[in-house]
Design a protein around this nucleic acid. Structure first.
Length: 280
DNA sequence: AGGTCGGCCTGGCAGC
DNA sequence: TGCTGCCAGGCCGACC
């Protein structure tokens, strides 16, 4: 699933190919992609306008166009962008022809991905206003996170996944970061200590940075622009490794459910929180 | 008000 | 073998 490192991988590959180009055509085959806005509205806003830059905020990919227009896209679960795809790939939801003759295809089997246009930087800022701190930027500090989590009884994994608090961390990198920090995913966020947050912020940054360096993780659908797979799945410490030995201590990795998601943990390196309520 | 859960969607796979 | 049904999960909205 595309999380911050996967979106950043796509952004880095796409930016040099798109900067300065214009879309000649934008074919939105699946109107769900831009619902509730009609496809014609996006076509009108995007076609013919120079692409000035490609940005990322959290898991959003943002095409900055001339005259202060922004195409804001989210790959969600199974979205992929392909550059000059061979033929017409299955599940192509959107097709783009560029003014240099190259083509882009938005391929998305499960159709969760979205695209929308913001007109004006104020509209863009409003659209992104609810996103939390960027974990690879300076605001992501142990003291800031501890103060954000103060009093919260939500499991730390749910806290990490909440895009309104921290933008860009998803299921894979949350598991990997918690393992690095030696914190159990079910520990209440408000009970993570300041040293705990120091380890966790460092763990989040390390996992994300290594993910970017590996070109992201391909479990099922994620692909590079040319269809190549990412490599970070081979470096997972615990995610999707139930039954395999923990790389730190050899204890078999366990799978449990936290925040409604499959969650992988070494319960020796990440001891279960003591029950704080009444004994049963 | 903050946390939990169902719906969206489809490929893949377990189980009969 | 072939069908059914369940699971995966980012994000939003409904609910408690």
């Amino acid at each position: 699933m595309p999380e911050l490192p996967e979106v950043e991988t796509v952004r880095r590959q796409l930016a040099p190919r798109l900067t300065g180009r214009r879309a000649i055509t934008l074919e939105i085959r699946d109107p769900r992609w831009c619902a509730p806005r009609p496809p014609a509205e996006l076509v009108q806003a995007v076609c013919g306008r120079r692409i000035e830059a490609l940005r990322r905020r959290g898991k959003f990919l943002i095409f900055e166009l001339e005259s202060d227009r922004f195409l804001v896209c989210h790959l969600r679960m199974t979205g992929t962008l392909l550059y000059d795809p061979l033929g017409d790939p299955a599940h192509t939801r959107v097709g783009v022809e560029l003014d240099d003759g190259h083509r882009l295809a938005w391929v998305d089997p499960r159709r969760f991905g979205t695209g929308e246009v913001a007109v004006g930087s104020a509209a863009l800022a409003a659209r992104l206003a609810r996103l939390g701190v960027e974990p690879l930027e300076p605001g992501f500090t142990p003291t800031a996170m501890r103060s954000l989590a103060r009093g919260s009884r939500t499991p730390i994994k749910a806290f990490l996944l909440d895009q309104h608090r921290i933008a860009g961390v998803g299921n894979i990198y949350a598991d990997e970061a918690l393992h690095r920090a030696g914190i159990h995913p079910l520990r209440p966020a408000g009970r993570v200590t300041l040293p705990g947050w120091s380890a966790l912020c460092a763990g989040v940054r390390a996992a994300l940075t290594e993910g970017i360096e590996a070109g992201g993780a391909t479990i099922d659908d994620f692909r590079h622009l040319d269809g190549a797979r990412g490599a970070y799945q081979d470096a997972f410490r615990v995610h999707r490794r139930a039954g395999e030995p923990c790389p730190e201590c050899g204890t078999p990795v366990r799978k449990l459910v936290a925040a409604g998601r499959g969650t992988y943990v070494c319960e020796r390196c990440q001891p279960r929180p003591r029950a704080t309520g009444r004994a049963r």
